[in-house]
Simulated assay, not measured.
Amino acid sequence: MFRRTLVASTLALAATAALLPAQAQTSEKPPLKIVVGFPPGGSADLLARLLAEGLKNDFSSVIVENKPGAGGRIALGHVKRAPADGQTVVLLPSGPMVLFPHVYKKLDYDAVTDFTPISLLAHFQFSVVAGPASGVKNVAEMLAKAKAAPGKSTYGTPGQGTLPHFMGVMFGQKAGAELTHVPFQGGGPANTALLGGHIDYKFDVVTETAELHRAGKVRIIAVTGTQRDPQVPEVPTLKEQGVDMEATAWFAMYGPAGLKPEVRDMLSAAVAKAVRTPALKTRLLEQGYEPVGSTPAELAAAQKTDLQRWAGPIKATGIQLD
């Protein structure tokens, strides 16, 4: 009896010992890579790095990897092909998920089925920025100049088919002015062109040019939201200047399709906690973002709503890109 008991105890201890490494591994914090589809220095990159700082205690490491190009589609393709283990996610503005399906004839991803919604991070609005080459001080002067020489006024954006690109098209249609679009690979390069006088204007999120505006190097002449932006409270909205147009957007985090619910929910909870901490919330507000930190279901609902909302306006513009 003693021998049988000793053998059983020995086997039980061996089984327990065998499980310990696995349990230790599962209790370790995983690493996290946040992929951003735009170059360093832009609004998406800034938000990703602020978020990475807020998440550092929840993961063994948090890195931001920039994969710029194609308005964020390169980053989306990378994350689409990543293992569904919760260690690779993409942070992006809403355009690639709600505009691109209507704008591009062919996309190498399905915005709904190829990704797992994790969290809606923040809402934001856009700005109309005049560079030193334009010589204008407000929207009225911009429109007068554009109408006097149709197609001669140029505006830059972070890329072809991005939300700012569409904002520029919509603005021209609403205001009755013909502007020529010049795409760049991110907001930083567009700022360089604006400062160098290579383009007249720029459409982008307010954060991208707020410091340049305050330094007097460029002039933000309008914001596109329903109210003025706290970063530049002296700048009127488009509606205040007679252009019947309002437009806002959001940043969100997605993982590849097939994330396990428990992994998805762990990521969402960590992000929501980070976004709502007083320090990060204050930083986001200072940068012109309205912090959210939603559940996966809330992000999926927001995406569905905006997919439907933008379908009609985009079709009306006739924009179709290859």
Rank of each mutant, 00 (worst) to 15 (best):
A301I: 14
V7K: 07
V223W: 02
I319M: 05
A249M: 04
L299T: 11
S94F: 01
I74M: 04
D45E: 08
R283Q: 14
R81D: 10
P30F: 03
P158M: 02
Y155K: 07
F2V: 14
K152L: 14
V169P: 07
I221M: 02
L321H: 06
E178V: 14
A148H: 05
K304M: 10
P313N: 02
A84C: 02
R81K: 08
V36D: 00
K260E: 15
A279Q: 08
P291T: 12
I319E: 04
L120M: 08
H123C: 03
V98F: 01
G156R: 00
R228N: 10
E208Y: 02
G131I: 01
W250Q: 11
S60Y: 07
A148R: 07
R264D: 14
V79D: 00
A22W: 06
L212Q: 03
I221K: 03
L307K: 07
K137T: 11
D306A: 08
A15R: 06
K67N: 06
T180D: 07
V112P: 09
V103M: 08
A190Y: 00
N66D: 13
G288H: 03
H102S: 10
R49V: 09
D244T: 04
A111W: 01
L280T: 08
V235N: 05
L46P: 06
G71L: 12
E246R: 11
P189E: 03
G69D: 12
L107N: 04
A44P: 09
T5W: 12
G186K: 01
D108F: 11
